[in-house]
C-alpha cells in the first residue's frame, strides 16, 4: 500500500517535471505568434485565451517552464553538491581549514539572500544569478547539516569498523557516511530546488528573466497582471504551473527522504 502511494507521487511529480522541460513540443502553435486580440477570453482553439499581445496562453505556459526548470535544477545541483562535499569534509577533518570553512558558511548565512541575489543579477546574466544566489543561500545550510551528520557518524560502529580495516578517509566518506545519509541528501536537494525555483521566479518577475518575446512563467505573471480582469487564465495558469512545479519537487524530495 505504501509502495503504491510512493510510486503514484513519483510518477505524478516526474510527469510535471517532464512537462515543464519538454512541454514546448506539445504546444502545437508558436508561443510568440499573435493569434487573437489582447487578453481575449478562452474560445475554440484558444483553451486558455490570449495574453497581453494576443498570444496563445496555453502554448506559452507549455513552453515557458523549460529554462526556469533547467536553471533551477542546475542551481540546486550545484548548491547541494557543493554543500554536501563541503559538509563531509568539514565534519570529518578536524583541521583549521575545516573550521574556517564552517565559520565562512556561517558568515554567508547571515547575509540576506535576496540582497545577494540582486547583487548577482546586476553583475551576471539571469540564469547565472539564480545559480549564484542558490549556492550562496543554500550551500551553507547544506554544509552545516551535513557537517553535523558526518561528525556524529564518526563515532558509529560502522565507521569505526571501516577505519579498523584500513579504509582511507575518502573511502569511508563515500562508502559509509554518504550512503547512510542518502535520505538527508535527497531531502536537501529538494529544498535547494524549491529555493532555486522561487529565486528564479522572483528574479524573472522583476524582469531579469529571458528577453521579452520568450515565454516564461514568471514573466507571464508580470505581463498579464494588468489584464487579470479580462482574461484571468493568463495569470492563473502560469501561477498554477509554478506552484505545481515547486510542489512536485517537494513531493519528490519527500520520497527520497523517506527512503532511508
Amino acid at each position: 500500500m505504501r509502495v503504491s502511494r510512493v510510486l503514484l507521487v513519483a510518477v505524478a511529480a516526474g510527469g510535471v517535471l517532464a512537462l515543464a522541460l519538454g512541454g514546448e513540443a506539445l504546444a502545437g502553435r508558436e508561443p510568440t505568434r499573435t493569434v487573437a486580440a489582447p487578453w481575449a477570453v478562452a474560445g475554440p482553439g484558444l483553451p486558455l485565451g490570449a495574453d497581453v499581445l494576443g498570444r496563445d496562453v496555453l502554448a506559452r505556459v507549455l513552453a515557458g517552464g523549460r529554462d526556469l526548470t533547467l536553471g533551477a535544477l542546475a542551481a540546486a545541483g550545484a548548491a547541494s553538491s557543493l554543500g554536501v562535499a563541503g559538509g563531509l569534509w568539514a565534519g570529518w577533518s578536524r583541521g583549521r581549514a575545516a573550521r574556517a570553512a564552517r565559520a565562512l558558511s556561517d558568515l554567508l548565512l547571515v547575509l540576506p539572500l535576496l540582497l545577494v541575489a540582486m547583487l548577482a543579477v546586476v553583475t551576471v546574466p539571469g540564469p547565472a544569478a539564480v545559480i549564484a544566489g542558490t549556492v550562496f543561500g543554500g550551500a551553507p545550510l547544506t554544509l552545516r547539516v551535513m557537517a553535523d551528520a558526518t561528525a556524529q557518524a564518526r563515532h558509529t560502529g560502522y565507521v569505526e569498523a571501516a577505519l579498523s580495516r584500513g579504509e582511507r578517509g575518502l573511502s569511508v566518506l563515500f562508502r559509509e557516511v554518504l550512503p547512510a545519509h542518502a535520505g538527508l541528501v535527497g531531502a536537501d536537494l529538494g529544498q535547494r530546488m524549491v529555493l532555486a525555483v522561487q529565486l528564479s521566479a522572483a528574479l524573472n518577475v522583476l524582469g531579469f528573466g529571458p528577453p521579452p518575446p520568450e515565454a516564461d512563467w514568471a514573466a507571464m505573471l508580470r505581463e498579464n497582471l494588468p489584464g487579470i480582469g479580462l482574461n484571468p487564465a493568463a495569470v492563473l495558469a502560469p501561477a498554477a504551473a509554478l506552484a505545481l512545479l515547486a510542489g512536485s519537487v517537494a513531493g519528490l524530495s519527500h520520497i527520497l527522504a523517506g527512503r532511508s
Partner: peptide, 17 residues
C-alpha cells in the same frame, strides 16, 4: 590481527548497506 566488536549493536552496521 586486531579486531573489535563494539557494545552498541544499533549503530554497529551501516543502515544503508
Amino acid at each position: 590481527a586486531l579486531s573489535l566488536v563494539g557494545q552498541d549493536p544499533l549503530a554497529a552496521l551501516n543502515p544503508a548497506r
